[in-house]
Design a protein around this nucleic acid. Sequence first.
DNA 1: CATTAAATTACACTACGTGCAAGTTTGCAC
DNA 2: GTGCAAACTTGCACGTAGTGTAATTTAATG
Lengths: 229, 229
Amino acid sequence: MPELLSRRELNKAATRQAITDAALTLLRARGPGNFTVEDIAESAGVSRRTFFNYFSSTEAALASMTHGFLDNALQQFRRRPTDEPILESARAALMQLADPMTVAPLAELFTFTQDNAVLSRSELEAWDHCTEEIITAARERFAGTPGAVVDELYLRALAGSVISCGKAAMDVWFARCGADLSPASLAVLRQLLIDAMGHLGSGFGSPVPAASPSATSTTATTHLNKERL
Amino acid sequence: MPELLSRRELNKAATRQAITDAALTLLRARGPGNFTVEDIAESAGVSRRTFFNYFSSTEAALASMTHGFLDNALQQFRRRPTDEPILESARAALMQLADPMTVAPLAELFTFTQDNAVLSRSELEAWDHCTEEIITAARERFAGTPGAVVDELYLRALAGSVISCGKAAMDVWFARCGADLSPASLAVLRQLLIDAMGHLGSGFGSPVPAASPSATSTTATTHLNKERL
DNA sequence: CATTAAATTACACTACGTGCAAGTTTGCAC
DNA sequence: GTGCAAACTTGCACGTAGTGTAATTTAATG
């Protein structure tokens, strides 16, 4: 009975999971900054030292969720057809994120990140890490078409902007809907992502998104105009 | 003889300066991570405790330079005419950064930031902080025209993208020219900033920038195509 | 079962960041 | 100047973060 994962790997995965679970539980119970690495380790049933064998800090443990979230987006991007306009690929990839299972952990993290400097710092790092990976993915994509010379500036400016738009959409969404994961709320997020990418695709010509076939766009945007962030 | 700054404020400014100077000197001498807060304090002639009265960490002390750099850009943005297209204002503001005095400290920091996780982390924070301030500035700008409703998504997506483009230009510039501050090198940076904003303004339609009146654009971009970052 | 490699653990040590209670300097009024 | 109050600096102590190391436990292999 040759299992796919050895017992070693299973144990490691379990330990890792136990640590992140414990961290999240403590975050929920006591709020950010009100618990130590030792608390997490004890709660996870491992030693303090073992914690550091898995994560370099409390924030890193929590940010692993954001990484999972963003890795998902990256995966979506990579499996888009190569001949598709790159902005459309990005849009499609971001769209997959407006999924209950996917955003749930991130939405909860947002609740605590809002008023905590240390946490938002590692969130920033996660988004930046994702940007670098998108740059790599996009570079490979363009390199695929033979003879084409890849413009690093174009790549980096594009990837950074796409991520910024995704981030902007999530920020506005969270300010608007909080951690609400209802279908209606997710529809808002989806529309925000579409609108943000629309702005990007049209060169931010006007605050009012260009007339699109979908009537929902204008409506959703109008609602959000009243928002204070 | 009523001085503009009281002795107290002068002393504080001097202490602050002494600390950042000491930090930079040590960074140059020993490289990132190879000196402690105590080293900086001693070198600046203050106590360890006083250091923490000014900065919350070594990185914060070094990042104060980046903050100065970005605050400069923000100032430039704010003093642009209100009726100017916002992307043009952003372009003009970024352009001011390609100035020897202004980029010098940042360029040097880049040298160390490249291969150091802790440093780049606080750099990220500085850029993010600047993004938030641009959002505020842009919001006030739009709120100036009465009756206009401000679209938070547009604001945040735009500000984030502009900053990303500025960052992309600086990254490529540094990869291309290192810490070179010669007129030729700065001209490259200026052109990169223009090109990046050009990509943004045209919705990233094509890796090759739209035909522009300036012939330099295409040339500079072509050179950079060979770049590996 | 024995051997080997990997993972966990305890321990020690340096450095970080902060609260607190001194001491010192500056500003201001008299 | 003298005195006083507020601001700034300093030393000390304390808890926590993160890392090196060596010993111990656990899993895989033959």
